Amino acid sequence: MSKPTVALFDYGSGNLRSAFRALERAGGDVELTSDPDSARSADGLVVPGVGAFAACMDGVVKHGLDVLVRERAAAQAPVLGICVGEQVMFAEGVEHGVETAGIGVFEGRVDHLKADRVPHMGWNTVEAAEGMRLFAGIDPAERFYFVHSYAAKTAPPGSLVATTVHGEPFIAAVERGPVSATQFHPEKSGDAGAALLANWIKGLK
Rank of each mutant, 00 (worst) to 15 (best):
G104Q: 08
V126R: 05
G108S: 14
V126A: 06
H112V: 13
V126W: 02
M132C: 11
M121C: 03
M121W: 04
G122R: 05
G122S: 04
N124P: 10
V118G: 02
G122E: 05
N124G: 05
V118T: 12
A101N: 03
E130M: 13
H120Q: 09
G104H: 09
V110I: 07
R109C: 13
N124Y: 06
N124T: 03
G122K: 05
G104E: 05
E127R: 14
A101T: 00
A101R: 02
P119L: 04
W123I: 04
M121T: 12
E130K: 15
T100K: 00
N124D: 05
A128N: 05
E127M: 12
G104A: 09
R117W: 02
N124E: 06
R117A: 13
D111E: 15
A129Q: 13
G108D: 10
G104K: 08
M132R: 11
M121N: 00
L113Y: 00
G131P: 14
T125P: 11
E127D: 14
T100E: 02
G102R: 08
W123F: 08
L113D: 01
E130Y: 12
R117Q: 13
R109W: 06
L113C: 03
E130C: 14
M132V: 11
L113V: 08
G108M: 09
G131S: 15
D111Q: 11
R117Y: 04
D116T: 12
E107D: 15
G122Y: 04
W123S: 04
M132Y: 13
H120G: 03
E107N: 13
R109A: 15
H112D: 12
I103N: 05
R109E: 13
F106I: 09
A115E: 02
I103T: 02
W123V: 01
G102M: 09
D111F: 03
H112L: 15
K114H: 12
A128E: 00
T100M: 01
R109T: 14
H120T: 07
D111N: 07
M121S: 01
A101M: 01
M121H: 01
G131N: 13
G108Y: 04
A115R: 03
A128T: 01
T125W: 09
T100R: 00
E127L: 12
A101C: 03
N124K: 07
G102S: 11
